Each structure stands twice: as structure tokens, then as C-alpha cells.
Simulated scan of single mutants.
Amino acid sequence: MGCDGGTIPKRHELVKGPKKVEKIDKNAELVARWYYCMLSQERLTKPIVACELGRLYNKDAVIEFLLDKSPDKPHADTAAHIKGIKSIIELNLSDNPAWAGGKGNTKGDKYDEQCAQFICPVVGLEMNGRHRFCVLRNCGCVFSERALKEIKTDVCHKCGAGFKETDIILLNGDKEEVEELRKRMEERRLKAKSEKKAKKPKAVESVSKPDQGEESPGSSQKEAEDTSFPRDKIDFVSTAKTQVDSQSSSSDAAAKSSSSCTKRPAPGSERKSEAYKSIFTSHNSAKRTKEQSSNWITHTAYYF
């Protein structure tokens, strides 16, 4: 608390007031947006790409993110809406002839980001964040918003490709502008999904229609042949076929019944001799009398 050696504490040293809100330096924020990749936080180098929300990335960093989408990576939330390589646009930028490649400030006597690497090819404004820039989604050419407003046309000023107002994407816009771009992105993706679903049944119908067309001429030819052939001959042929079929079926049934029945030997016409009959036990000679039968006391089968 003090008071040792004659010191007197003041009120601001004893009572802590509310913390002051830290203000972000606008120049530092512009440099972070326009000169560094939003995903890897490295300096932007060609090839540079932009997402459908207008954020700038290095193409290598986006490809690495698509190959490994682990949530543990830093700044992964800024690229969560990028689903594939088709979700990004490679920028066709115009180099600034006044840019020295970062080698001009060797003494450290001037601000590094005074000169931008790219400019607008129509108006000549530097792409340093102080001016609003747009990219055309179809061709990837980058222009300042002033150039697009002054020269109103549906053709790109650099490559001559056609575009619409919905194809213009504002780079590094405000929160409200980013929300509008997000709505456009969602509508565009829903439209693409609906078009894919509509194309699938059409492809199935196109495959089934030729098959139906091949069957129809055959049936018409058969009907024509039937009408050209006389009716009396048709009846005669049909009756002949039924008779032949019935005969063949009866012959098949007889063959099956004959094969299924057991073969029995035919009875002998000649009478057997007494010598032949005496072989069997049913003959009178094989039968024994009571005297010849075995006694119950003996163990032998026959006791005479």
C-alpha cells in the first residue's frame, strides 16, 4: 500500500477502472488483408486465388487445406466454406511497374507497403486496400470498382469475356457485403444441385427411348405380316400344329410310363421236371416228418 518512506498512493493506483478497448490500427488491418494470405498468414505470391466471399489466399495453401481438412489447423475457419478447387477463382492480376519487389526500402526510411504489387489495368489505382477492387468470377480478371462503374459494359476490359452483375465479387468487403456474397454463393450451389438432379432422369429417358423405338417397328412388321397372310391358311396351320403337339405329348407320356414300370419275366410254357423242383425247400422231399425232426434234448439240429 505504500506509506513507507513518505510515499502517498494515488487513487488510480488503488482503484482499477474499466479496461480500455484496444483499437486496431487500420493500416495494419489493410496490410493483413491485402498483402498476406488469410489461411497461411504468409505473404501473397502468385498464383493468388480468391474465394466466393472475396478473401485472398495463396493457391498452395488452399490445396494443402483441401488435402487435410483437420480442424486443429490454425485459421481453418476462414476457409471452411471452400469445398473444392472449383470454389476458388485464380486471379488474373496486372503488375505495378513502380513496385520494386520489396527491395527498395533498404535503409528503412519509408513505409514498406506504400507501393502495391498490383494495379487496376483500366484506371491505374494501386491494389493496396485504400481502393475497392472486384474480381470477375468467369475469367478471374481484377479491376477497381471505379473502373467498372465508369465504364459500364457486359464485356471484360482485359480478356473480352462476357459477365453479369452477379458474377462480380468484391474483394475484402465489409461484413454486410460478405453476407450478401454468402447468400449468392448458397443460391448458386443450390441451383447447381437442382440442375444435376434434373439431368439424371433425362439421361435415363434418353437411354430407354431408343429401346422402345427398336421394339415398335418389329411389332408393326409382325402385324403387317399377319394381315397380309390369308386367314384360312392361318387356321389350318394352327390346327395342324395342335395335332402334332398332342401326338408328341402322348408318345412322350407312353414312353415315360413304359420306362417307369418294372419288367417281369414271362411265365414258362414248359413244365419243370421233378429233379428241378427237388432243389427248392418247398418240394415234398425237403419236408421232414416228426420222427426225423430234432429232439429237444439233443443239441444237434437233426437227430435220426
Rank of each mutant, 00 (worst) to 15 (best):
R137F: 02
C139A: 03
C139L: 03
G140M: 04
C141E: 05
V142Y: 07
F143N: 10
S144D: 09
S144L: 06
R146H: 07
R146N: 03
A147H: 11
A147L: 10
L148C: 03
L148V: 12
K149C: 06
K149F: 07
E150Q: 11
K152M: 05
K152E: 02
T153F: 05
T153C: 03
D154G: 03
V155F: 08
C156E: 04
C156R: 14
H157G: 12
K158R: 13
C159H: 11
C159N: 14
G162Q: 06
G162R: 08
F163I: 15
F163Q: 07
K164V: 13
E165W: 01
L170V: 15
L171M: 11
N172I: 13
G173Q: 14
D174G: 12
E176T: 11
E176K: 13
E176Y: 05
E177L: 04
R182A: 02
R184Q: 10
M185I: 10
M185T: 15
E186K: 14
E186P: 08
L190M: 13
K191E: 06
K193A: 01
E195V: 09
K196Q: 14
K197Q: 08
A198L: 14
A198T: 10
P201S: 03
V207G: 01
V207E: 13
V207S: 08
K209C: 06
Q212A: 06
Q212M: 07
Q212I: 05
E214C: 05
E214H: 02
E215L: 11
P217Y: 01
P217M: 00
G218M: 00
S219P: 14
A224H: 10
A224M: 08
E225F: 06
D226F: 09
T227E: 04
T227C: 04
S228F: 08
F229W: 02
P230E: 01
P230A: 00
R231A: 03
D232I: 03
K233Y: 12
K233T: 09
I234T: 11
F236A: 08
V237W: 11
S238A: 05
S238Y: 02
T239G: 01
T239V: 07
A240H: 10
A240E: 03
K241S: 03
Q243S: 04
V244Q: 09
D245Q: 14
S248W: 07
S249V: 05
S250E: 14
S251G: 03
S251P: 07
S251C: 04
D252M: 02
D252L: 08
A254N: 10
K256T: 13
K256N: 12
K256E: 12
S257F: 12
S258A: 01
S259W: 11
C261S: 10
K263P: 09
G268V: 02
E270P: 15
K272N: 08
S273W: 12
S273V: 12
E274N: 13
Y276Q: 14
